[in-house]
Design a protein around this nucleic acid. Structure first.
Length: 896
RNA sequence: AGGCGCGUAGCUCAGGGGUAGAGCACUACCUUGACACGGUAGGGGUCUGGGGUUCAAAUCCCCACGCGCCUACCA
C-alpha cells in the first residue's frame, strides 16, 4: 500500500462527508436500539445573511464533538440544524440590493419586496449550510428548519394568540427606542450604550414671578421645547421653597411646574432636571408619576415637529440643538457649557443615535414568565450553566430586572403580527385571517402591518423545530434537549427567552445544560469584527491546516477567552501528521495482521510489559476523556488524547514493539504483535474521532480487518464507519498500575542513559555498556526482562544487572528511583571534570529539594497538624533523596 | 456607578492548598528503515505587588496596580 509521508487533509475532507450524510449516519433513526438513551441539541440558528466566522466554528466544533461522542456511545443522537430569518439584517441586505437598481422597498411595495427576499434567500442565503458541511458537522439535514417556514410560522401564531388571550401580549402607547434610520422600534437589547465625549449645557428657566430663575443641566437642549416640568429632589434644601412654583419655559412661553421627585440626584449638575416626558425614558416615567402632559417635539425622522414652534419645525434634531443654544445665549439664559463624557444609545446595527419616542407598539409582559424561570433556577438549578460562574448570576440578575418586551417591529420581513382591525378599529387576534374574519363577521379587515421581533420566533426554536404545537414523536423523543452550546452575548436575547417560552408552552425546560463558549479575540486581544476587518476566516484556516487541526484548536478553547494564534493550529496540524505517520508505519507492517478485539483482550500477566502497559494506558485515557467530556472539559480531553497518542503510543509503544513488528521472519508472534499494534491504533482513532472526524475515518477505512463487528451494537447492520464504532469504554479492571509502575522504571532508566549520552557527547552510532545495580529484586527483574528493549532504545551493546553496582572508575553514572543506579563505562571518553560537574549539578538539585522538605519537617506544627500520610510522604522523600545523595557522593569520590 | 473575570516560562494558554505544567519559540546533537509537520537531551518561572488565614498559599481572604467584560434611569 502506497501511503504518502505527509498527510494531506484536503483529500480526507472530500472523501467522507457526502457518504456519511447519504448513509443517514447523522439521523437518529440510524440507531436501531429502541432502548437507547437520547442525546439532542438544537443549533443556535445562524442568520440567513451570515457567513461562517470563528464563533460559529467554535460552537459547531463543540457541538459536533458532543454529538459524535454520544453517537459512538450508543445514544440516539439528534443535532438539529437550521437558520434564522434575521428580520432587520435581511431586510437591509435586500434593500441595499434594490438601491443598486435605483429602487426603494416602497417603490415595489410590501408583497413584491417579501417575494424578493425569498428569492434572495433561495439564491444567496444560507452560505453557512454549505460551510457547515466542510466543518464536518454531523447535523441531521433532513430536519433542517428555517424560522420563516410554514410550521414555524404556525407555532409563532399559536404562541402569540395564546399569550394575547391570557393578557400577556398587549398593545400599548408608551415610550420606546426608535431608530430614525431603520424606521423601526427596537427592544432594549438591540440598543447599545456607547461612551462619547459631548457637552453639558446649563440653561436658565426664569420663574414666572419674575424673581430669579432655576438652572437645569442637559445634554439635549433641543428637547427643552417639549419640557413640561422641572424636577428637584424633595430633600434638596436649595430648592425646598421652589417646589410647586411655576417657571416660564423660554422660547415657548409655556408655564411649567417645579416638581419634587426622588429620581433626581441633588449632586449632579445643578440638582434641577428638565423633564421631557415625550423624549426620555426617565422623564416619561416621572411624567407618569406626576401626570405631566407629553409634548412631542421630535418626529420619527428625528426632525422637529410643529409643536416645537414655527422657528424649529422641520429642523433636524442636531440643527435644532444648535439653534436652541444660540437663542438661549441671545436671551442671556445660557449659563455655561462644559465638556462631558456620557454613554449614548445607538442602534446596534446601523449605529444611529436612538430617539426615544412615544409610540403604539405590541408588548409582552414578562413578569409571570420571568418568575417561572427564576423558580426553575432556584429550585431545580435549571438550566445548569457551564461554567456556572459567572453565567448563572448574570442570567438571574438580568431576569430579576426584566422589563416588558417590545415585540413589534416596523419591518416587512418577518412574521406579520396576527392581529386584524375592523373598520371601527376593533382588534382581533387570531391564528389565521379566516378565523379573524369569522369572528369579525364582516369583510373589512386589515392586518396589523408590523412584524414580530426576530427573537420572538427564535425563542420557540427548541420545540417549534420539532413540530409543536402538534404532539409529534420528535417532541416526545428529543425535548427537552440535552445541552445548548452558545456564545455569551445571546444569554439574554435568546437563552433566557427560550427558557421562559419552554416552561410556558412545554411545561418543561428546553435544555438541561447551557455551555457558554469563550470568545476568540484577534492576536492583539481585540474582538473580531467586520468593521475592524480583523476577523480570521475559518475557511482559510481549514485550507491552510486542515479541518481536523482547526477543530482540535477550537475544542481546546472551550469556555475561555483566548487570543487567536495560528501557531497552535499548526501544532495540531503536526499532530494530525503524527497520527498519519503512526498509521503509515502500522500499515506498512501489517502483512498477515488485522484489527481484532482479541489482540487486546488476550493481553494478560504473561504478556510483554509494553503490551500490558499500553492496554492500561488506553483504558485510562478512555476513562479520562469520558470524564472530561461529561464535565464539558474539552481542553482536558484534547490534552489527554494528544499526550496519549504522541507520548505513550508513538514515542514508547511503537518504539518498543518495533522489534517484534519488523522481524524478518514471519511468525505467529510477529503476526500477533502486528495485530495488536493495529488494534491499539484502531482504538486510538475511535478516541480521537469526535474531535478529528476526517483523518480518523480516512485511516480507519484503510485498516485491515475493520468490519461491522466494530460498530456499536445499536448500529449493527449499518454501513461501516468509525463514526458508528463504539467509543472505548475505559474499563477500570484493565488499568494495570503495576505495569505502569514497571514501565515507568524502564522509561526512567532509558532517559537517564540518554541524558548521559547527550551530556558526554557520545555519538548516536556508538554502542555503550550499561551496568545496572539495584538492591531491589523486583526492579532487577523488570530491567532483566526488558533488557533487550533497554539496549535498543538506549543504544547499548550490553546490559549487565546486579545487586550491587561494580563499575570502573571511568564511568558516568546516574542514580535512579528506588536506590537503583546505572553506570556507563567510558574509558578514554570521559572527561572527569565534566562528569564531576554534571553530578554536582544533580546533587545541588536534590539538596535544594531536601532542604525545603527538611525545613517543613523541622516545623513541629507540621508533624502535629498535617495529615499523617503527608508527613510520612515527606519523610519518605527525604530518605530517598538522602540515599541518592549518598550514592552521588560515593560516585563523585570514586572519580577521584 | 455597580457587578464579574483575568494577571503563571519570551509568546499563547492549562492547572487551582502539599515536588510549578503543555504547545510554540530557544540551545545542543541526530539524513536511527512511520514521521524534519520528525527524534533525543537541555536551558528558562520568588505563578503582578503588598498584607492576612493555614502546619503548608501560585491556589483561599483583603488591599493596591494593570487589563478585559457585563449591567445601569445622573439629566
Amino acid at each position: 500500500m502506497e501511503i504518502p509521508k505527509t498527510y494531506d487533509p484536503k483529500q480526507a475532507e472530500q472523501n467522507h462527508y457526502e457518504r456519511w450524510e447519504r448513509e443517514g449516519f447523522f439521523a437518529p433513526e440510524i440507531n436501531r436500539d429502541p432502548q437507547a438513551p437520547v442525546f439532542s441539541i438544537v443549533i443556535p440558528p445562524p442568520n440567513v445573511t451570515g457567513s461562517l466566522h470563528m464563533g460559529h466554528a467554535l460552537q459547531h466544533t463543540l457541538m459536533d464533538v458532543l454529538a459524535r461522542y454520544k453517537r459512538m456511545c450508543g445514544y440516539r443522537t439528534l443535532w438539529l440544524p437550521g437558520m434564522d430569518h434575521a428580520g432587520i439584517s435581511t431586510q437591509m441586505v435586500v434593500s441595499r440590493e434594490l438601491k443598486k437598481e435605483g429602487l426603494s422597498r416602497h417603490d415595489i411595495g410590501r408583497e413584491q419586496f417579501v417575494e424578493r427576499v425569498w428569492k434572495w434567500k433561495q439564491e444567496s442565503g444560507g452560505q453557512i449550510t454549505r460551510q457547515m458541511r466542510r466543518e464536518g458537522a454531523s447535523v441531521d439535514w433532513s430536519r433542517e428548519k428555517f424560522t420563516m417556514d410554514a410550521e414555524m410560522t404556525r407555532a409563532v401564531r399559536e404562541v402569540f394568540v395564546r399569550l394575547y388571550d391570557e393578557g400577556m401580549v398587549y398593545r400599548g402607547n408608551r415610550i420606546v427606542n426608535w431608530c430614525p434610520n431603520d424606521q423601526t422600534v427596537l427592544s432594549d437589547l438591540e440598543v447599545e450604550k456607547i461612551p462619547q465625549s459631548g457637552k453639558l449645557y446649563y440653561l436658565r428657566y426664569p420663574l414666572k414671578s419674575g424673581q430669579g430663575h432655576v438652572t437645569v443641566a442637559t445634554t439635549r437642549p433641543e428637547t427643552m421645547l417639549g419640557d413640561t416640568a422641572v424636577a428637584v429632589n424633595p430633600k434638596d434644601e436649595r430648592y425646598r421653597g421652589l417646589v410647586g412654583k411655576t417657571l416660564l419655559l423660554p422660547l415657548t412661553g409655556r408655564e411649567i411646574p417645579i416638581i419634587a421627585d426622588e429620581f433626581v440626584e441633588a449632586e449632579f449638575g445643578t440638582g434641577a432636571v428638565k423633564v421631557t416626558p415625550a423624549h426620555d425614558q426617565n422623564d416619561y416615567e416621572m411624567g407618569q408619576r406626576h401626570s405631566l402632559p407629553q409634548v412631542v417635539v421630535i418626529d420619527s425622522e428625528a426632525k422637529m415637529t410643529e409643536a416645537a414652534g414655527e422657528e424649529f419645525v422641520g429642523l433636524d434634531r442636531y440643527k435644532a440643538r444648535t439653534k436652541v443654544v444660540e437663542k438661549f445665549a441671545e436671551l442671556g439664559l445660557l449659563e455655561k457649557i462644559v465638556d462631558y463624557e456620557f454613554a449614548i444609545s445607538k442602534c446596534e446595527r446601523c449605529k444611529t443615535v436612538i430617539e426615544p419616542l412615544i409610540s403604539t407598539q405590541w408588548f409582552l409582559a414578562m413578569d409571570k414568565l420571568r418568575d417561572r424561570a427564576l423558580e426553575a433556577l432556584q429550585q431545580d438549578k435549571s438550566p445548569q450553566f457551564v461554567p456556572e460562574v459567572p453565567y448563572e448570576k448574570v442570567y438571574s440578575n438580568w431576569l430579576e430586572n426584566l422589563r416588558d418586551w417590545t415585540i413589534s417591529r416596523q419591518l416587512w420581513w418577518g412574521h406579520q403580527i396576527p392581529a386584524w382591525y375592523t373598520a371601527d378599529g376593533t382588534v382581533i387576534v387570531a391564528r389565521s385571517e379566516e378565523e379573524a374574519r369569522k369572528r369579525a363577521g364582516n369583510d373589512e379587515l386589515t392586518q396589523d402591518p408590523d412584524v414580530l421581533d426576530t427573537w420572538f420566533s427564535s425563542q420557540l426554536w427548541p420545540f417549534s423545530t420539532m413540530g409543536w404545537p402538534e404532539d409529534t414523536k420528535d417532541l416526545a423523543t428529543f425535548y427537552p434537549t440535552s445541552v445548548l452550546v452558545t456564545a455569551r452575548d445571546i444569554i439574554f436575547l435568546w437563552v433566557s427567552r427560550m427558557v421562559m417560552a419552554g416552561l410556558k408552552f412545554m411545561d418543561d425546560e428546553p435544555f438541561a445544560d447551557v455551555f457558554v463558549t469563550g470568545t476568540i479575540l484577534d492576536a492583539h486581544g481585540q474582538r473580531m469584527s467586520k468593521t475592524k476587518m480583523n476577523g480570521v476566516d475559518p475557511l482559510e484556516v481549514f485550507d491552510k491546516y486542515g479541518v481536523d487541526a482547526t477543530r482540535l484548536k477550537l475544542a481546546s478553547v472551550g469556555s475561555t477567552d483566548i487570543r487567536w494564534s495560528e501557531k497552535q493550529v499548526e501544532s495540531y496540524r503536526n499532530f494530525a501528521n503524527k497520527i498519519w505517520n503512526a498509521a503509515r508505519f502500522s500499515l506498512m507492517n501489517s502483512e498477515g495482521a488485522a484489527v481484532k478485539p482479541e489482540a487486546l483482550s488476550d493481553v494478560g500477566p504473561e504478556s510483554a510489559l509494553h503490551d500490558r502497559w499500553i492496554v492500561s494506558r488506553l483504558n485510562k485515557t478512555a476513562r479520562e476523556v469520558r470524564k472530561a467530556l461529561a464535565g464539558y472539559e474539552f481542553h482536558e480531553a484534547v490534552q489527554t488524547l494528544y499526550h496519549f497518542f504522541w507520548d505513550d503510543f508513538c514515542d514508547w509503544y511503537i518504539e518498543l514493539t518495533k522489534s517484534d513488528i519488523t522481524a524478518e521472519e514471519a511468525s505467529s508472534s510477529r503476526a500477533e504483535a502486528r495485530s495488536r499494534l493495529l488494534t491499539v491504533l484502531e482504538q486510538a482513532l475511535r478516541l480521537l474521532h469526535p474531535f478529528m472526524p476526517y483523518i480518523t475515518e480516512e485511516l480507519w477505512q484503510k485498516l485491515p480487518g475493520v468490519s461491522g463487528e466494530l460498530l456499536h451494537p445499536a448500529y449493527s447492520g449499518a454501513a461501516q464507519s468509525i463514526m458508528l464504532a463504539a467509543y472505548p469504554e475505559g474499563q477500570s479492571e484493565l488499568i494495570d498500575e503495576n505495569a505502569e509502575w514497571e514501565m515507568q522504571a524502564v522509561i526512567d532508566l532509558i532517559s537517564r542513559v540518554r541524558n548521559i549520552r547527550s551530556e558526554m557527547n557520545i555519538k548516536p552510532s556508538e554502542r555503550v555498556m550499561l551496568l545496572i545495580g539495584s538492591p531491589d529484586k523486583k526492579t532487577r527483574a523488570v530491567y532483566q526482562t526488558n533488557s533487550a528493549q533497554i539496549s535498543r532504545l538506549a543504544r547499548a551493546a550490553e546490559v549487565s544487572i546486579s545487586e550491587k553496582l561494580e563499575a570502573p572508575r571511568a564511568s558516568a553514572r546516574a542514580v535512579l528511583v528506588g536506590g537503583a543506579e546505572v553506570a556507563v563505562p567510558l574509558e578514554g571518553l570521559i572527561d572527569f571534570a565534566q562528569e564531576r560537574e554534571r553530578l554536582g549539578k544533580e546533587k545541588e538539585k536534590l539538596s535544594a529539594e531536601s532542604a525545603k522538605l527538611e525545613a517543613q519537617l523541622d516545623n513541629p506544627q507540621f508533624a502535629e497538624r498535617a495529615p499523617a500520610e503527608k508527613v510520612e510522604e515527606v519523610r519518605a522523600r527525604i530518605a530517598d533523596i538522602a540515599q541518592r545523595n549518598a550514592q552521588l557522593d560515593q560516585t563523585i569520590a570514586n572519580l577521584g
